[in-house]
Design a protein around this nucleic acid. Structure first.
Lengths: 210, 210
DNA sequence: TTATGAATCCATCAAATGATTGAATCGCAG
DNA sequence: CTGCGATTCAATCATTTGATGGATTCATAA
């Protein structure tokens, strides 16, 4: 059996998939309440009723976006883990940061949506949620900072969160920080990687060698 | 001459000040579009028309909140700078992080509002803005990382941004991260300070001693 | 006490917004 | 071609939401 979301992902040209893609971007930019179904429909170039026909209501579409993003991010984490498996800690961090940064700069909706979920409340009783807690524990284990993902010490969780938060913040805040630092986009991306590595790698390696 | 905002701040019991205080909290929690004037009025315990009588429209109130927060945060940065002036870099960082963390945990609206401004767009043509760029350059100078606040190198700006973003994220994300790390509020605050110092102090001191 | 202006609330409006209905259109199997 | 289900759109509805007008209350000075 295939869920509606899976069906939509199979054919990126399908109306359902096109709506989902645009919804991801707009929800990420404006948040749940800042987004109107009309904005999404207009961007896709369709009528609102077509949007409702495919996805039901605004909340349903929003929750589909959450599930979609969870899936993409989870997949990316798995691939990243494969790429760094078995390497020494410093290299794991360097390559991991590089890959995740590149991926999220190419998919800023993900960082945007996750940050909205962290900090903002919604007026409706939402059920869908991001898998950030599981992902965070997974990263800790993948980095060799914990054996069992069910039992990661709080100090380690906090350090992993610090890294992930830094990445998301620099990605989602690009439009704000880029002019502030007075560099172009390309230089900004390089600076983000540089800064992340320079700031966070010592924090993990110092801990290990003690 | 006193602006309306200054007048409101003089007497915290005045209706204008009470509305502003509640508006700060609700705008911080739900963002601009997620907040309705009725929510604010209800929390204050007044009618919507009273709110409009004192502050004009929703946008006006929102922008007053932005100005209010800029003032508070700027004042806090000045006081923090006085407290750390002349100390060695490591102590400046430790005390600075401690003070700012305590202050922002006591005023989470500030972190919430600033993050909303970083990452979220609004549908209306806003004019009010946070003074984060100036503040960031000020911090860099205060930390002795730049002589002239008009000419801070991008690498330094990025490191300062990394610190401030980390603080704001841990503050604004308390409700999300606290259960994730499975600690109570008091322990969480201690962990935040600990993590921030452990992660960021080496990044600045290593740079200096080279 | 009364007159005056400030402050507050009730009732209501106009626009925005999520959602639905029913008619038209499209694609394609028979 | 015909018929039928899937898809799309124009028109419309119901609710929410920002905002306003006017009556009422309140404080205070004369």
């Amino acid at each position: 059996m295939t869920t509606p979301l899976e069906k939509a992902r199979k054919d990126p040209e399908s109306m359902k998939a096109r709506i989902l893609t645009v919804a991801r971007r707009i929800f990420g930019e404006y948040g749940f309440h800042g987004t109107t179904t009309r904005m999404i429909a207009q961007q896709v170039g369709i009528d609102i009723s077509t949007l409702h026909y495919h996805w039901g209501g605004k909340k349903d579409l929003y929750e589909a976006v959450v599930v979609d993003i969870n899936k993409d991010l989870g997949q990316q984490l798995i691939e990243t883990e494969k790429a760094i498996h078995g390497l020494p800690l410093t290299e794991r961090l360097e390559i991991g940061i590089d890959r995740m940064t590149d991926y999220l700069f190419a998919n800023p909706d993900i960082s945007n949506m996750i940050l909205f979920r962290y900090f903002g409340k919604t007026r409706y009783e939402g059920n869908a949620d991001f898998s950030v807690p599981e992902f965070t524990a997974d990263i800790a284990r993948s980095m060799g900072l914990a054996r069992d993902k069910r039992n990661v010490p709080p100090e380690t969780m906090m350090k992993v969160l610090a890294v992930m938060n830094s990445i998301h913040a620099f990605i989602a805040g690009e439009n704000f920080f880029c002019p502030m630092v007075k560099v172009d986009r390309k230089r900004y991306i390089a600076l983000v990687k540089e800064t992340l590595k320079f700031v966070h790698i010592p924090a993990f390696t110092l801990n290990e060698t003690r």
